[in-house]
Design a protein around this nucleic acid. Sequence first.
DNA 1: ATAGGGTTAG
Length: 613
Amino acid sequence: MIVRRAFTTCFNSNTLLPSPSQGTNTVTATTTITLLRLHSLSQPSTYPNPNHIPTHHTELQQLLNEKCKLGFDKLDDALVVFDKMLRMKPLPTVIHFTQLLAALVKTKHYSAAVSVFSKMCSCSIPVNIITYNTAINCCCHFKRVDCGFALLAAIFKRGFVPDVVTYTTLLRGLISQDKFLEAELMFKNLLKCNQIQPNAVIFNTIINGQCKTGNTSQAVMLLRYMENKGCMPDVVTYSTVIDGLSKDRLVDEALGLLAEMSDKSIQPSVVSYNSLIHGMCNLSRWDDIIQLLNDMDRHKISPDEHTYSILVDAHARDGKVKDAQYLIELMIQRGQNPNVVTYSALMDGYCLRGELNKALAVLRTMTSKGILPNTRTYSILINGYCKKMKVDTAIHLLEEMPLKGLTPTVETYSTILDGLFRTRRLDEAHKFYKKMLNKGVKLNVVTCGILLHGLCWNGLVGEAMSMFHKMESCGLVPDICIYNILINGLFRDNKVDKARNLYHNLLLKGLQPTVITYNIMIQGFCHEGLLEEAYKTLLEMEENNCLANGVTYNTLIRGCFKNKMYHGGCVLIDEMVAHGFKADASTASMLFDLLQLKEQDPALLALQKKFMP
DNA sequence: ATAGGGTTAG
């Protein structure tokens, strides 16, 4: 069904024309024409080029073997080889041509690959299902899965039979374009209609899609399903699910699957370990990380550049920049090459510590090694400068990006916007925001949060509220962070009723308040002297199974003291300590001041008696 | 002697 529907959409007038929404690739006019021509390639039309150049096929094979591994240095080289091949006598086999095509796809010369395939067809090279599969893979990587389906139609037209590889490639293409539901439906139909004998690879493709769309539990179920159907999960199946679980912070379940692998004598790979180590890093479970590294050593699996990158990133984010630096030296010693991701992670570590000069030094090191900074590298630096209030330098870096062929993301722009608001450069912030919109940057919830926070921070709560309503009407769904920002802003603007209102609205929308939401409310009520309501909020959060944290208690205790409710404050201190939290600096100094007071309040005297026996 | 699957960054 889904396949047929895809066919009809493919033949619909202009689905093949590049649409602005798919503009990640530069689709040239010639590419588009070539893509369009693919449809009519049911029958070969012309004969081979008459100007044959005699060349040995073995020589060609050697060249292709080499280029398949390393890729062509220049696109022109590949096209020259192709041209030569067309003029060879006898004509090289379709295998040679398919190898060339695969090499082009591997080196990401997708539009060139499309023209080569098209030319192969028009020169009556006897292309087969494998050639088609390679071409479909090319379309999918080129983010044109619709063209992939057009080729599937061509396969049927020429009387070929698509195989499991054809469908796997198409499924992966759909998934990579966020069409997982379509992929899943198509997969189910293929199974139901017995169109293919499913193997591990096609299952793995779907399992990966499930993990990427947040359905890890379903992925585990599909793994069990394939076992039951006698299609044994392999190392990729397990690694995919382990990665999904690790990203969901379910690392212990992931460890269970790793153990299951060795029970079934499926050798884990470095990828399986990398996913798990990454998961452990996100939870700062350092002991587990060390254990996993030892485990790898025992299994004679060496860490690769991914492993090191993950570890460098974890150390850098934890502030351990020295260790991160050392890890990079270690990986070089062991013959691994740090790449832009590795160096960017280290730079991020320095930026987080505010050590911008050291971050710049890393940038110099990497460029001296011929590693070019990417969008993320720039974003890290821009973020570093904004956090240091050096917004002008950040803007300068932003302007430099297009000159280096880099496109800032919505996150990059948002960082600058945040910087302008924080430094109270309101006019510029407004102008910058307009410029962002003019550039066609698509706003997301995080950007809106920055905008709303910036407005509130600068006392423009009214503007923030109207922005919030506009945001809702634009189809952006406000999350709990947005509500937190606004409720906080309203309280700071003494708009208690409106804050209360907004809180009830978020409950009505089915959103779950977090500990931050409650803390904001408690602080707001305390500030207004509404201690009763603040305390009721504490009870409410307990009812809603939201645990109070140190901030909650400290806020409430300070509120009590400020309102001369010494007894209540004292009871809460006991409760806080019982829950394992401590007074923070500001509560402690407040308490210290109170104890010096010479007021004859009975509750205060009791308090003094308790803390100064 | 040709094709498809898993890992690194707010």
